[in-house]
């Protein structure tokens, strides 16, 4: 696995050739890169060569990038089915991910795991899982182990508003609060669980983070499309966890642009409106930070364009390499079972 570079904050993004060391630019680059990867893959998805159900994070990049920017390399993260952005933001290998989607031997799981099971323990991406809520408990367990060892590490669980309805969510919060484990729960509330809105799934009148407060866990609501706000909140949360104060819960308001699974747009399918999608697209986290940076002269439009092209070349190269590289051998199908 190629060495990834660590930025000042601990988030792992390739360093900008232009404007190096400007924190906002690093965040912008990290989001641009993830967007570029996913849009490229979404375009290629129709070719039927990536034969793995894929949940794109397009529109939700700020949560992954903002949280991971507040982490250290030794911290660990867990994700769910929508894991691409988390994996990349924590420094997961791009070729490992693309190779996995193409079912190749160079994939992170050598083509045995697929899009929803990205992991790269060397950079702290321990596991992602397609079972709702499953890794919430696992993150609590890793954080518990850190607490037992008095290690200055934290564990993060990324999940959606849908996982909040699972029993394991409540068991995990209860245990984390009881043992004051250094776990950061990051709920990406994108308002939908597949095609069901929050109104048919959770009682009205009390938001998720408020309900979590009943466990005695410190909770916070943040605009999940404002990467600077997310990073700030996550830094507070990480400090809190690291200093032995127990778990922290961040609810991040954000929105998924594409269909639940797959590369298409689906505002014409009746469960949400085009207006709603467009409203959220107007609040694009990348657009927002770009405007912020340009207004303050932190970078120029030319820089941003150069970055886009840099990432486009990087993804294209990863796709080309993945496609050229061999599939796993059927004779090796049993490898890793034990």
């Amino acid at each position: 696995m190629s060495e990834v570079q660590e930025s000042h904050s601990g988030a792992v993004v390739p360093r900008a050739a232009e404007r190096p060391g400007v924190p906002e630019c690093e965040l912008l680059r990290a989001m641009l890169r993830i967007r570029c990867v996913e849009e490229t893959l979404a375009d290629l998805y129709a070719e039927q060569e990536m034969r793995t159900p894929t949940h794109f994070s397009i529109g939700q990049e700020a949560v992954a990038v903002g949280v991971c920017a507040a982490l250290r390399r030794a911290d660990v993260i867990y994700s769910g089915h929508r894991c691409h952005a988390h994996y990349l933001a924590k420094g997961g290998s791009l070729l490992g991910m693309v190779g996995e989607l193409y079912g190749r031997e160079i994939g992170t799981a050598r083509g045995r795991g697929g899009s929803v099971h990205l992991a790269q323990p060397e950079v702290g991406v321990i596991a992602s899982s397609a079972i709702l809520g499953q890794t919430l408990a696992v993150a609590v367990g890793s954080a518990w182990a850190f607490a037992m060892d008095h290690a200055p590490r934290i564990a993060v669980a990324f999940f959606g508003d849908g996982a909040v309805e699972e029993g394991i969510f409540h068991e995990s919060l209860n245990f984390a609060a009881l043992h004051r484990v250094p776990v950061l729960f990051v709920c990406e509330n994108n308002l939908y669980s597949t095609h069901s809105g929050l109104a048919v799934r959770q009682p009205a009148g009390r938001s998720i983070y408020e309900r979590v407060g009943a466990y005695g866990i410190t909770t916070e609501h943040v605009d999940g499309n404002d990467v600077l706000a997310v990073r700030q909140a996550a830094s507070r949360a990480a400090d809190h966890c690291r200093s032995g104060k127990g778990p922290y819960f961040l609810e991040c308001a954000t929105y998924r642009w594409r269909e639940h699974v797959g590369p298409l747009w689906d505002y014409d399918r009746g469960y949400r409106t085009k207006e709603e999608v467009e409203q959220w697209m107007a609040r694009c986290p990348i657009k927002r930070l770009t405007e912020h940076c340009l207004a303050r002269g932190l970078c120029t439009p030319a820089d941003v364009e150069a970055w886009r092209q840099e990432f486009r070349r990087e993804v294209d190269a990863a796709v080309a390499t993945a496609r050229r590289s061999p599939f796993p051998r059927p004779e090796a199908i049993l490898e890793g079972t034990y």
Partner: peptide
Amino acid sequence: IPNCENAFAGIAIGAAAMGK
């Protein structure tokens, strides 16, 4: 432990992943 068979199996897995 609390009565949480589901989560606790996962908690044990997470601890095992960190060396326990």
